[in-house]
Design a protein around this nucleic acid. Structure first.
Lengths: 110, 110
DNA sequence: CCATATACTTGGTTATACAAAGTATTATAT
DNA sequence: ATATAATACTTTGTATAACCAAGTATATGG
């Protein structure tokens, strides 16, 4: 079970983590969840959390999607890729987070 | 104006910051806001945010309060002090946050 | 006497993460 | 053949926390 704080800490940052992953390579939703699980799933990311984030990011033009329907595998996949706006946002949000985290650390370690 | 992310990043951590401040010395609510402002108010803490946090922490037994009514100054102050449970929580939550922040940093800097 | 500072309180809004369930197809095992 | 699990996306309702705005009340300075 996840602590009360662990859940709250993720607010806002999950979106940036997703953007970061998509800046490396395009991925489909289920793949993101699966790869996170393989890495130990430190963020405890589930589908019900991920997909709304993807829709938000797409509505805001930070990522774009395309359906891929292959002949051999009839379950279609929706691939997401980061856009230039998304890259800008990722850069800015990363800076914001690092500064925020640094400030918090300073206070907590005082 | 504060960015959309800045607000979200605070979720969960403000409570711990308040606990940290109260672990140094007992303080009353307005004083916390004032001292934060003096330090540049990096967390942009306002009364409407602080007091609910204080009530929550008190309900959970992490801090305790006493009213101080002085003769010279008729506006009473409610002083808050951290409890032993509060100290335990502070310690645990600090560790949780530092680990979380470290993990996020690793991903974002990858 | 009116504005400002001190000090605490409350109400309603918004954002985000979450659990749970649902849809549909394909692969595997019985 | 049929049940089960795995793949893949979607939706609904809930909880939590931060926020703005406003309100209460006393004290002080112009």
């Amino acid at each position: 079970m996840e602590s009360k704080y662990a859940k709250q800490f993720k607010k806002g940052i999950l979106e940036i983590i997703i953007l970061k992953l998509l800046s490396k390579k395009e991925m489909y939703g289920y793949q993101i969840v699966s790869e996170m699980e393989e890495r130990g799933n430190v963020f405890n990311l589930r589908e019900g959390t991920l997909y709304p984030i993807l829709y938000r990011l797409e509505d805001d033009g930070m990522i774009e999607s395309r359906w891929e329907q292959s002949a051999s595998r009839n379950v279609p996949r929706k691939y997401y890729a980061i856009t230039p706006s998304g890259k800008d946002l990722l850069k800015e949000a990363t800076e914001q987070w690092l500064e925020f985290a640094y400030t918090v650390e300073k206070v907590l370690k005082d």
